[in-house]
């Protein structure tokens, strides 16, 4: 057996051991996974952001990149109780700029196109059902008034639409997870144990 495949298979079995109950083997594998994930994302960000987007252009002459560099370093002031207020400018810049992008993205990219698409086929039964579904779903999430009387009836219809949608997503999620499970079992049976050609 290939030692690398065996190592991967042992970690796979260690994680599946949780299906019996929580145990030290599972917890060891869980912490290996958490450590690798933290290291993976740190390494990726270090290389793709700090090296490629900051350090290399900076030594290439783009000196104004010192500003985001300083702002980035200031975020680490969050670790000190005394100096944590210094990180606020950096956070305010990131959150403010993202808020500006998000504001237009949500309104222009989601709300208006979705409303427009809903209104296009209102003449057909299918289109009418979609309009009823969209409005009643929105009404279900309207909590400023109690769901009584006409609002209660519309919210209840919205709930049915939401349940059908959740059911469809539940079905797809089950299928996706079962596909992953089949993939792992195939790895154990075919790639590791060679029980099937």
């Amino acid at each position: 057996m290939d030692p690398v495949t065996t190592l991967t298979a042992l970690f796979t079995l260690a994680i599946y051991s949780f299906l019996y109950r929580d145990n030290p083997v599972y917890r060891f594998a869980e912490h290996v996974f958490a450590g690798l994930s933290a290291g993976y994302y740190s390494g990726l960000i270090f290389q793709s952001v700090l090296v490629q987007q900051l350090w290399q252009p900076l030594i290439g002459g783009k000196l104004w990149l010192i500003v985001p560099g300083i702002l980035g370093v200031l975020t680490f002031a969050r670790l000190s109780t005394k100096w944590s207020w210094l990180s606020r400018v950096a956070l305010a810049f990131v959150i403010g700029a993202n808020a500006g992008i998000l504001l237009m993205q949500q309104l222009h990219g989601l709300v208006l196109p979705q409303v427009a698409e809903t209104m296009i086929n209102m003449g057909t039964i299918k289109g009418l059902l979609v309009v009823v579904g969209v409005i009643s779903t929105l009404m279900y999430f309207y909590f400023s008034k109690p769901h009584k009387g006409a609002l209660g009836v519309i919210a209840n219809v919205g709930m049915w639409f939401i349940m059908i949608s959740f059911g469809a997503h539940f079905g797809y999620t089950v299928m996706a997870r079962v596909s992953l499970l089949i993939g792992r079992v195939q790895f154990l049976v075919i790639d590791w144990l060679h029980l099937v050609d």
Binding site: I95, N98, Q106, L110, Q114, S136, L138, G158, F161, I164
Partner: peptide, 27 residues
């Protein structure tokens, strides 16, 4: 294509309006 899409659209529109309102409050 019909009930699922209608509910998803309702959820997307509601969430997008909420996100836009929060973004405006931050600005």
């Amino acid at each position: 294509a019909v009930p699922n899409m209608a509910a998803q659209r309702g959820i997307i529109i509601g969430a997008a309006l909420g996100a836009a309102a929060t973004a405006l409050r931050i600005i």
